[in-house]
Each structure stands twice: as structure tokens, then as C-alpha cells.
């Protein structure tokens, strides 16, 4: 029984962890490059989810239409990211972080108001595409095909981002800008353009995640906040701005949350905060601290 439950904890934990990562990837990306903690990230995730729903409806006819809706949502939210960068974020690059938090919090409220105006306050739901809309039984564990799809999606997104950051020239330039924007600028790098590209990529990831994670959650104005808390925790545990650290932290949080719900159901949610406290004491700069951290 314990073995069977442990298998379920691992599968479910991985799925939760990958869902957290899909949201946290954009959050940690923009923090790593711009040093901006974007409180509105969940709101743009929510907008991506509504856009994908508007395209694909409640019952996607195929995997292609489902993925296509997610990609379109990511592109549109990426464009919104460009506009947000030009109108809001560029003005925040030289101010104290308190102003950044207040400004992005205001942006979140603005986004929620606009979404409420467009889509109303009713709840909506979206089912998985037929290819992954089936139940699987592994031992005594019941797992949906969509759960495995989320795990795969998280792994693919991580592989793509990690390759861009560590194997491609554009990623290396981004890391150079993140480490020392002045020096990167003197070497001929167009720093403002790199910063804008980073914002667009971060927002596009949020929108794409909104489309991919639709079948797991009720679609409402508050859908972003449910993922955002865990994403913030993962970014903190992983090391602010570090994609690999965030990825590992998301898996840890997902498995811990799943084990908590399975083995300590009467103390729901408490284990995640214990883990956070342990990491803050043990690794105050995160699992993969940025260069220069002590």
C-alpha cells in the first residue's frame, strides 16, 4: 500500500511541479535578467488562459488545436508584454524595488479589471484534447493522460529554455546582460533590446502556460493566483533568476505537496511552508545562487 501510494505521490508531485514550473519559468526569467519581481505575472497567465479558451472552447477537438490555442495565447500575451515593457517596465528600471512591486501590483489589478470586463465573472472549464483525455491505472493509482502530458510539457519547456540560456548565443548574451549590463553595453550589446526581448519571452511563457494548464483548473479571474504562490516559492528556493534552480525547486514543491496531501491529509498545505523555512535557513540564496551571492 505504501509503495502504491508512493508511486502516486511521485507521479502527481511531478505533474504539480511541472505545472508550477510552466508558470514560474517566465517569472524567474524576467527576474534573472531585469531584476524585476513581476506581481502581474499571474494576471498575464490568466489572460493567456482566457485567450486560449476563447479560441478552442470547452472541448478541444484535437491536440493540434489545443497546442495551437496555447501558442496563439503565448504570442498575444508576448505582444502585451512588449507594450507593458514600453509603457510601464522601462520606467521602473532605475527606481527602488518597492516602486516596482507597487507598479506591477497595480498592473495586476488593471489586468483583472479588463479581463472581468471582457469575459465576465462566470466560471468556465476546458477539457483535455481527446488524445490525452483518458484514465490510466498504474498499480492502485488512477492517473489521467493529461497529467502525463503536463509532465512532458514541463520537461520540454525546461529543455528549450535551458538550451537557449546555456547553448545559444542569444542566451549567453542575456546572461551577460544579467551579470553586468554596463560591461555588456560597452562590448556592443544592445542592452535595451535584450531586456525587451526578455520581457516578451517571459510574458509569452505566461500566456502559453495559461493555455496549456487550462484543463486542470476552473477558468476564472483568479486562476493565476492559484499557481503564482507556488511559483514565487519555487523562484525563492531555486535561487532568484535561475531557471535550473527553479525547475528543481518546482519538482521538490510538487512532490512535497503531493506527499502532504496523501500521508498527512489533516495538515493540508503545511509541509510546503516547512520546506520553504528549511531552505531559507539552509540555503538562504537558493539552490543555485546568482554569481556574487554570499
Amino acid at each position: 500500500m505504501i509503495v502504491s501510494k508512493s508511486i502516486f505521490v511521485l507521479i502527481n508531485g511531478l505533474a504539480s511541479g511541472m505545472a508550477f514550473f510552466l508558470v514560474a519559468a517566465g517569472l524567474t526569467w524576467v527576474f534573472g535578467i531585469l531584476k524585476i519581481l513581476n506581481m502581474a505575472h499571474g494576471a498575464f497567465f490568466m489572460i493567456g488562459a482566457y485567450l486560449a479558451f476563447s479560441i478552442v472552447g470547452s472541448n478541444p477537438e484535437s491536440m493540434w488545436s489545443f497546442l495551437g490555442a496555447g501558442l496563439v495565447a503565448g504570442l498575444v500575451v508576448g505582444v502585451l508584454g512588449y507594450l507593458t515593457d514600453k509603457i510601464v517596465l522601462t520606467r521602473l528600471r532605475t527606481v527602488d524595488y518597492h516602486y516596482v512591486l507597487i507598479a506591477t501590483f497595480g498592473l495586476m489589478l488593471f489586468c483583472e479589471g479588463v479581463a472581468k470586463w471582457i469575459w465576465g465573472i462566470d466560471y468556465f472549464s476546458v477539457m483535455p484534447p481527446p488524445q490525452v483525455d483518458q484514465a490510466l491505472k498504474i498499480g492502485s493509482s488512477y492517473v489521467s493522460g493529461y497529467t502525463l502530458f503536463v509532465i512532458a510539457a514541463g520537461l520540454v519547456v525546461f529543455a528549450v529554455i535551458d538550451t537557449i540560456m546555456h547553448r545559444l548565443w542569444v542566451g549567453k548574451i542575456m546572461r551577460a546582460v544579467a551579470n553586468d549590463p554596463w560591461m555588456a553595453g560597452t562590448l556592443g550589446v544592445n542592452v535595451p533590446a535584450i531586456l525587451t526581448i526578455s520581457v516578451i519571452a517571459s510574458f509569452a511563457l505566461a500566456g502559453f502556460a495559461g493555455g496549456l494548464l487550462l484543463p486542470n483548473q476552473t477558468l476564472s479571474i483568479n486562476v493565476g493566483s492559484s499557481f503564482l504562490l507556488y511559483s514565487f516559492l519555487a523562484v525563492v528556493i531555486g535561487g532568484l533568476g535561475n531557471i535550473r534552480g527553479t525547475f528543481v525547486a518546482c519538482i521538490i514543491l510538487g512532490v512535497v505537496e503531493s506527499a502532504n496531501a496523501t500521508f498527512m491529509a489533516n495538515f493540508g498545505g503545511i509541509a510546503v511552508y516547512i520546506v520553504l523555512a528549511v531552505f531559507l535557513v539552509w540555503k538562504p540564496n537558493g539552490l543555485f545562487p546568482a554569481q556574487g551571492s554570499t
Binding site: 502516486f8 502527481n12 505533474a15 492559484s226 503531493s258 493540508g268
Partner: peptide, 18 residues
């Protein structure tokens, strides 16, 4: 039991299924 505002009920659902 589950948290009232939880987003993931797969553990509870698995328990019911068993």
C-alpha cells in the same frame, strides 16, 4: 478532507477511486 481553495484534488480523487 481537502483545502477549501485547493487547486489540485488528484490525491483525494485517487483515494475515492480506491
Amino acid at each position: 478532507y481537502a483545502q477549501a481553495t485547493a487547486t489540485d484534488f488528484k490525491t483525494q480523487i485517487n483515494a475515492v477511486m480506491n
